[in-house]
């Protein structure tokens, strides 16, 4: 799935209190790309993800996914698109308190009216893969933060989405769980050619991406492409983070 973001902007608040969350951002994400979005808090990472994932509408600009202008779609069509093609891992988990772990994980499949057999199969596969077997009957409230994040990830991935949006997916995980999740994300990116957009603060997490864009004050400030060596890429990301922290300007590619 190719994603093209054209000159989108988004303000929050009104008149004098208005905050420019996104200022004229352009971006292209190739089919099967694993894109990282980094930047300081309040830079606009989550807003950018929300706009691309159609959870929010931009004030102006376009988001084209495989040539379809998502900003022109009706709410109902957007919801259908999200349900069928997208998966989400949110910073705040966004799990449903009323449902237990199993019901939370299988929710996207049930919404798509998948067969009972397929639901059960996918659920077994996913819980085994993410090492959360035995949690299925637990209430969401009884889980640790890390467990909640894994469950949220399982929910996002169970439907084999074509695009996966992840907002700080490893923020609440210990290093082992984080590695399992990231490896799985990389696996589906490689094997299934799932396009992944991931917002993160963490350079280690970002080092799994094929490319990282840096957002600051609502604009894309810089980008770093994975040279094929993760350690080197990790260092580049760290350096870029230092640069942003120092306030230096970094040229962005002509495409943007």
């Amino acid at each position: 799935m190719q994603i093209v973001v054209k000159n989108i902007a988004k303000d929050y608040g009104k008149r004098f209190n208005a905050v420019h969350a996104i200022k004229d951002i352009g971006l292209e994400v190739k089919h099967g790309e694993f894109l990282g979005i980094m930047g300081p808090s309040g830079a606009g990472k989550s807003t950018l993800l929300n706009i691309i994932s159609t959870n929010e509408r931009p004030d102006h600009g376009q988001v084209l996914i495989d040539g379809i202008d998502m900003t022109e779609l009706h709410d109902k069509e957007q919801s259908k698109y999200r349900r069928n093609k997208m998966g989400f891992i949110y910073q705040s988990f966004e799990l449903l308190d009323s449902l237990n772990v199993k019901e939370n994980i299988i929710l996207p499949m049930a919404l798509n009216h998948a067969s009972k057999k397929k639901i059960e199969q996918s659920f077994r596969h996913m819980t085994k893969l993410l090492n959360i077997e035995g949690l299925e009957k637990r209430n969401v409230d009884d889980l640790s933060l890390g467990q909640k994040q894994i469950v949220a990830a399982a929910r996002a991935l169970i439907n084999s989405p074509e695009i996966l949006f992840a907002d700080e997916p490893t923020g609440s995980l210990d290093s082992k769980s984080a590695t399992i999740l990231l490896n799985y994300m990389q696996l589906i990116n490689d094997k299934e050619k799932t396009t992944i957009l991931m917002a993160t603060h963490d350079a280690f997490t970002a080092s799994y991406c094929s490319r990282v864009v840096f957002v600051k004050d609502g604009v894309i400030f810089a980008e770093v492409v994975n040279p094929g060596d993760r350690n080197k890429f990790f260092e580049q990301i760290i350096n870029m983070q230092r640069t942003i922290g120092g306030g230096s300007y970094f040229n962005v590619s002509q495409n943007n």
Binding site: K76, Y81, R82, S98, L107, L111
Partner: peptide, 12 residues
Amino acid sequence: QLKTLNKIGVSK
């Protein structure tokens, strides 16, 4: 919960 449903693709 209602908000989350909307976010993950349940239409309004």
